[in-house]
Design a protein around this nucleic acid. Structure first.
Lengths: 213, 213
DNA sequence: CTCATTCTTGACTAGACGGTCAACTAAATG
DNA sequence: CATTTAGTTGACCGTCTAGTCAAGAATGAG
């Protein structure tokens, strides 16, 4: 029993990718099952062979998108790098990525998970739960990094957990602004302001230089 | 001709308010014209007497909501107050307001304009344009305040325009996080981190105190 | 070859969607 | 009172929605 019986197909994967593409560009409400099927080249009967509902597909799409984000972020936030470098990597990565997204999709799209989450939080509990868990994982990268930064003495005061929430809010807000204005430039100087948020701004660093203890 | 002829009615206002209530809680896509009409106690025929389309109603809702926000913000950002006090007022106002929103609607809702904007930016150009203009007005409060802060010597470096964009991104991001997690506590310490963003954090202020040149 | 399993297909449903319309009522003007 | 204007009503439209289902085709196992 090395292979499974019956027909094989990548229709499920195509459906998931189509859902990501269409919903990220527009929204959950604006994209119907029919549109997703058409883009994937899959008939609706097949859709409901793989997914019990539209919401279940969206949960799968959130998961799949997270899986690809995770590969990037594991590299960006590698514990082999000094914490400050991880943060700088991340800020640069966001700018580069949204610039690439704009090339591919024709406009800045911001964060898929947060967009879907904010839209569906009230009416679609399974989607809401998935988004909450993914957002928490985003935050964990920052938490770990900030804890390391504190251990190394890069940051003096403040709870890394609180700082991580703050930093995530700032980054996500910048992504939303970039989406609304279709302007990746709003993400270019994430680093300067992001570091200021956790007391590592250039001003604070100046102060540190002349007042180091 | 002191009064206008024909019947009078507040149906239009009721429709606008119902649209705000329902769409803010759920989303543009999840709320239909029928639901808005039912909540407003207005028949659909009347709806289309006042509005040419659902999108036109939503634009009116964004406008009406902005009008009420503006009253609050004009007070919060009164030029009679010192700039730092304006900012502190604003941060406190956001927390208090979302706490009140949670009491009234049963959950934290975040920013109506940004939620609708992020959802509709691709498929509904008239809504997108309205949101962009309102978001710009939000930013103007911050720009003016930061310009004043710089004039007073509260801030040393940095373009107020850039700082305003940054601060708005942070605030909006925090509101989205609060919506997604239904947690107003995420907004309690907006002041501490918000001021750090523009170089007025407690760390920077400590530095300033011992290094005031 | 036979059978079980997996996937595909297209036709189908019932309800919700945004939007239309003609007839009707209420108010102000002359 | 007649007319004009503004607002109300309920029935109606075509389309789109998520979701169903029975029949068939491809695949691997025995």
């Amino acid at each position: 029993m090395v292979l499974r019986m019956g027909r094989t197909s990548d229709a499920r994967e195509r459906l998931v990718q189509s859902a990501i593409d269409l919903i990220w560009q527009a929204s959950y409400g604006a994209v119907g099952v029919d549109a997703i099927c058409e883009r994937a080249g899959v008939k609706k009967g097949s859709f409901y062979h793989f997914f019990a509902s539209k919401d279940e597909l969206v949960v799968a799409a959130l998961d799949a998108h997270w899986a690809t984000r995770r590969v990037d972020l594991d590299r960006v936030f590698s514990p082999t790098l000094p914490p400050l470098e991880r943060l700088k990597n991340y800020f640069a990565h966001i700018f580069a990525r949204q610039t690439a997204v704009r090339q591919k999709y024709g406009r800045v799209l911001g964060c898929f998970h947060h967009s879907v989450g904010s839209e569906c939080i009230q009416a679609a509990p399974v989607i809401a739960a998935k988004v909450q868990s993914v957002v928490t994982m985003y935050r964990m990268y920052l938490e770990t990094t900030l804890r390391d930064a504190k251990a190394v003495g890069l940051i003096r005061a403040g709870d890394p957990v609180v700082h991580a929430k703050t930093l995530l809010a700032f980054i996500e807000g910048a992504l939303t602004q970039a989406r609304i204005h279709d302007d990746p430039e709003l993400l270019r100087n994430l680093e300067g302001t992001g570091l200021a948020l956790i007391g590592l701004g250039s001003a604070a660093q100046d102060a540190e230089a002349t007042h180091p203890g």
